[in-house]
Amino acid sequence: MDQSRSKASKVILVTGASSGIGKATAIALAEAGHRVFAGVRKPSEAIVHPLVELVKLDVTNPDDVVSAVAHVEREAGRLDVLVNNAGTSLVGAVEETSDKEASSLFQTNFFGPLRLSRAVLPLMRRQGQGLIVNVSSVLGFLPAPFMGLYASSKHALEGLSESLDHEVRSFGVRVILVEPSFTRTSLDTNASVASTGIDEYAAARSKSVAAVRRQIAEAPPPSGVAAEILSVIDGKHHLRRPADRRARILSKLRRWVPAAQFDKSLRASFGLS
């Protein structure tokens, strides 16, 4: 390893690192002195950072997952932290969403982190230590009209993460959920749209999408989420880490505000009456 690196330097694999939160995280971790491997689908086309090492990784491809983890172990001798960030989004009413569209989204948002976690755990168990950071969302604990499949995938990821943390902590391995609110990235602005539109949903869907886009336009950049991920790597373990001020407020409101009042507020935030 480069002698200029800190003694506290960790070996970290970040998925979905070609843009958005993943790219910002890979750069922040590398600039903090960690050795970072950035998982990207097309390394020849990715531009991340001179300190970041690229590795081919499509989280929906089981062979890529095995190969990427083996590459990190071969090059660095260990893997201290996995950041499961790769994700995709889908806009549309639940009724409008096909099985194929739902399956495709879950392949990235849920089965991707599941595959990566299974792939790194044998190495982390042998090391006697490790950390898995799963990038969730406030929609992992909140409903989201017209983003129901995305919210479902994040709810599933949260359930998986909490269960996994109980299973592996005796091996020195922990799991953390980082939960951003809307972030100014292309994930939601360029989200896929369910292919089967139903006229009865059109007006409400249009209002909801417009409301979400307004919030994204005013949202903080991905560097804030990256800073939160950096802080959790050496910080005290907390399973759920809301990644920004709005996420922290929403987490508290969800627990303490009466259900009817919260329901009304949430509907308004998505442009619904």
Rank of each mutant, 00 (worst) to 15 (best):
M1Q: 03
D2T: 10
S4Q: 13
R5Y: 04
R5A: 09
S9Y: 00
V11S: 02
L13W: 00
A17F: 06
G20H: 11
G22R: 00
A24K: 06
G33T: 00
H34V: 06
H34P: 00
F37C: 02
F37P: 00
R41D: 03
R41A: 04
P43T: 04
P50Y: 07
L51R: 03
V52Q: 02
L54I: 01
L54C: 00
V59P: 13
N61R: 08
V66N: 11
A68G: 03
V69I: 14
H71M: 09
A76D: 05
G77Q: 00
G77Y: 02
D80F: 04
D80K: 07
V81W: 05
V83C: 09
V83S: 11
V91M: 07
G92L: 05
A93C: 08
A93D: 13
V94M: 13
S98N: 04
E101R: 11
E101Q: 13
S103L: 08
F106M: 14
Q107M: 11
F111A: 02
P113K: 08
P113N: 08
L116D: 08
L116N: 07
S117R: 01
R118F: 00
M124T: 05
M124Q: 07
Q129L: 04
Q129R: 13
L139H: 14
L139T: 06
L139M: 11
L142V: 09
A144Q: 09
G148H: 05
L149Q: 11
Y150R: 06
A151F: 13
S152I: 03
S153P: 05
K154W: 12
H155A: 03
E158C: 04
E158T: 00
S161C: 01
S161I: 03
S161W: 04
H166L: 12
V168W: 06
R169A: 02
S170D: 15
F171L: 05
P180I: 13
F182R: 10
L187P: 12
N190D: 15
A191E: 09
A194C: 14
S195D: 07
D199Y: 02
Y201N: 11
S208E: 01
A210P: 01
R213W: 12
R214F: 01
A217T: 14
E218Q: 14
A219Y: 14
A219V: 14
A219F: 14
A226N: 07
A227M: 02
A227T: 07
E228P: 06
K236E: 12
H237K: 04
L239Q: 04
R240I: 10
A243E: 09
R245F: 10
L250P: 05
K252S: 10
R255K: 14
R255Q: 15
V257R: 07
V257P: 11
A260W: 08
K264A: 15
K264C: 08
K264Q: 14
K264S: 14
L266E: 05
S269Y: 06
